[in-house]
Amino acid sequence: MLGSNGAGKSTTLGCAQGLLRPESGTVELLGQDPYGDKPDLRSRVGVMLQDGGLPPSMRPIPLLRHVASLYRKPMDIDALIERLDIASFSSRTIRRLSGGQKQRVALAAALAGDPDVVFLDEPSAGLDPQTRQVVFDLILELRDAGKAIILTTHLMDDAQRLSDYVYIIDKGRTVAQGTVAELTAMAAEEQETRPVSFGAAPGLALPDTVPSGLHLSETTAGEYRLDGVRSPDHLQWLTNWWATAGILPTHLSLQARSLEDVFLEIAQKESEDA
């Protein structure tokens, strides 16, 4: 579930988890209305709240063992602790942990009961790149093991890397949905121009004159982008420049847009409609 801050992701998730009662509509989770005390349903659903909800005076490992003890067949807690490297900070109380460390404990608590359905609210928030990779690998592994994972994020990259299916949410409504490929392809058909991006040596001297309507720039060191490509002639101009300047790009893509482009486009359309 992708959306900017305040789009209604956590509220939607709260309704799906049964923590909030929806003002209208119905919710079904594993065939049941999730609202209220439903121990048997809860035993098959793992939830990671955005604020974590971890007791500040506890140490991580006793807390995880306690949560796991509520389930008949919990996940292998020791393996989970090792996987998320929780032992490295387990002597401290949760109050004294960094944001990323708390995130890892909250994720482990959500997975402790070996749930069939997992809700993760902003799982990558506050994680350093290395830990993020560990968490992402774990999430993808759980998906491959057949678990249903519903996660929210406001980061396109998370959605692109983790999702089979994406819902883009704005002001509490779904404004677009589909696989990442479907969403980006849909946008590509609608668009008149196709940005071309390529990699080459950093700091190339760009041509003095560019055909009208085109814009060539170095976005980051060694990454170039040509905006405004509307016809094959524009591509020919680009390859001509490469030929005369002796440039062989390391990679080249004539992109259907990224999920980020789609998202920004939708957001723009929404604000124009409003």
């Binding site: 988890q17 923590l19 005390d37 439903k38 121990p39 048997d40 809860r42 035993s43 659903v45 793992g46 939830v47 709240l49 604020d51 974590g52 909800g53 971890l54 007791p55 500040p56 949560v67 509520l70 389930y71 608590a109 009961g113």
Partner: peptide, 17 residues
């Protein structure tokens, strides 16, 4: 305040527990 009640109500413990 810290959401601990909310966290435990997502486990089999529930509010009654």
């Amino acid at each position: 305040r810290y959401g601990v009640l909310r966290m435990f109500s997502t486990t089999p413990l529930g509010k009654a527990g």
